[in-house]
Design a protein around this nucleic acid. Structure first.
Length: 478
RNA sequence: GGCCCCAUCGUCUAACGGUUAGGACACCACCCUCUCACGGUGGAGAUACGAGUUCGAAUCUCGUUGGGGUCACCA
């Protein structure tokens, strides 16, 4: 039985990298008929952020990556917060101490800092020299009993090699001499990631550990712990890290990494999942547009690439546009736009459905729709510099257009086209020379859907009012 | 710097010893056209380098180079 898990740390914004891992956790578990679980790794009290957990869980739900067990829905492996599992970690830390696989270290942060500097001076970039190993057992016990704070450190083997059997790269060998006596239990009583992850994954029966490549180095520590506790190892999958355009590990510094940002832009969750899947996986037939269901159907690790993919916002936006115009039904698109707008105070209006139709091939996000169609539903629409200039230069021409449009009956797209073509011909101009100023005056922009359709949607009243304003030179001064 | 991972167009990738090295985004041109998009057609653009194995290497091996990760009482 396959059990995968994603284990976010509630320290800040819901991260794109979390979604990336969760996506493959979800897909792999579903395909294997297994389960997918969420666990909260809240063992760092200094970075804990009380809002973070709910935002992360909500982002996962938004993406459609439904988990089978987790902090808010419970399940057979509760509790799902590491902060509520402290006795467990202590029990196994004690066991490791008894086994001789770990030892107490009493150095203070200041002492450690000094040790680190000494080692660095000797050209060794490591955090600790293992001096705590020399402490006699009785003294260690006595100081612990006396209440002196200590950390529990792994007693890394001095020789031999530890092999991490990564499912994606084959055996990865680590020289044990290069391993550090990593801290397993902090002096505040909380475990570090290394101890907690091994215990929790084992106890829950996590069969497949999917995580970022950043963990590969410390995977040796985890393998050692599984061995010390005589537990069977899970299958390891270290996935490549999403990269910034400069190829560094994806970070806030050079791009957007918060899932909430993408949602706020009006990126569709299915498009984001689809795009994330493309970061490493490829369909056998090369298709780039596919649903989560199709991904589950076709997924295979053999088709997974290991080079760190650069996250390309432009391509995501293209894909999102593709979903908007080709995947979603129009009515569904209307529903999403309405829902998106509602959170920001934008309401559908009488001509909304028709405007959606016209804008569909012209937008790549939901936000873009609302931002670029304000002239359809409000009078305080923005006027671009180019539009303002065009209007200013076209007074007489607009007056003629206004006169012609006043006569327009019915006020339909067809009639408007006939009238404007006729007017342009009488003026000896190309249609565009007439329509562009009109567009600028009526929409405040030089880039919009077809003018004839817009005239019909605006209707005679708004059209006349806006043109009168334009002719009077008060355009854009609402 | 030590250790570890990775290496095909600018970017995401296909090709699992034999292909004119394919597709997508982006870019350029043209078509469509009232603008902008969409759509269509075409174009430019890659196997990092060097050895080896082989009749034959993008593909296997080694080295070099480059990029990334990691070396916290953070995850």
């Amino acid at each position: 039985m396959v059990l995968t898990r994603v284990a976010p740390s509630p320290t800040g914004d819901p991260h794109l990298g979390t979604a990336y891992m969760a996506l493959f956790d979800y897909v792999w578990a579903r395909q294997q008929g297994g389960r997918f679980m969420v666990r909260i790794e809240d063992t760092d009290r200094s970075r804990f952020n009380p809002q973070s957990e709910q935002r992360i869980l909500q982002s996962l739900r938004w993406l459609g990556l439904q988990y089978d067990e987790g902090p808010d829905i419970g399940g057979p492996n509760a509790p799902y917060h590491q902060s509520q599992r402290l006795e467990l970690y202590h029990r196994y830390a004690d066991q490791l101490l008894e086994l001789g696989c770990a030892y107490r270290a009493f150095e203070t942060p200041e002492e450690l800092e000094r040790i680190r500097r000494e080692l660095d001076g000797k050209g060794q970039r490591r955090g600790y020299d293992g001096r705590g190993r020399a402490l006699p057992q009785e003294e260690s016990d006595r100081r612990a009993r006396a209440g002196e704070p200590f950390a529990v450190r792994l007693r890394a083997p001095d020789s031999g090699i530890t092999v991490v059997r990564d499912q994606l790269r084959g055996p990865v060998r680590f020289d044990n001499a290069g391993l550090e006596d990593t801290i397993l239990l902090k002096s505040d009583g909380y475990p570090t990631y290394h101890l907690a992850v091994v215990i929790d994954d084992h106890l829950a029966g996590v069969s497949d550990v999917l995580r970022g490549e950043e963990w590969l180095s410390s995977a040796a520590i985890h393998v050692l712990l599984y061995g010390a506790l005589d537990w069977e190892q899970p299958n390891w999958y270290h996935l490549p890290l999403l990269r910034n355009p400069d190829h560094s590990k994806l970070s806030k510094r050079s791009g957007h990494t918060s899932l909430e940002w993408f949602r706020g832009q009006g990126v569709l969750p299915e498009a984001l999942c689809n795009y994330l899947a493309l970061m490493g996986f490829s369909m056998p037939d090369g298709r780039e547009l596919f649903s989560l269901e199709q991904l589950i159907e076709a997924f295979s690790w053999r088709r997974f690439s290991l080079s760190g993919p650069v996250f390309d916002l432009q391509k995501l936006l293209w894909l999102n546009g593709k979903y908007i115009r080709e995947v979603l039904e129009v009515t569904e698109l209307e529903r999403r736009l309405a829902g998106f707008g509602a959170e920001r105070g934008w309401q559908p209006y009488p001509t909304f459905a028709r405007v959606v139709e016209l804008m569909r091939p012209r937008i790549s996000t939901l936000l873009e729709f609302w931002e670029r169609t304000r002239y359809f539903y409000a009078e305080d629409y923005p006027v671009t510099e180019a539009a303002a200039a065009l209007v200013a230069d076209s007074g007489p021409l607009l007056e003629e257009a206004l006169a012609a449009l006043r006569q327009l009956r019915p006020f339909s797209a067809e009639a408007a086209e006939a009238a404007l073509r006729d007017l342009a011909q009488r003026q000896g101009r190309k249609l565009g020379q007439l329509v562009q100023p009109l567009r600028a005056a009526l929409c405040g922009a030089t880039e919009t859907p077809g003018m004839f359709e817009i005239l019909e949607l605006l209707g005679p009243e708004l059209t006349e009012r806006r043109l009168e304003r334009a002719v009077a030179g008060t355009h854009g001064l609402v």
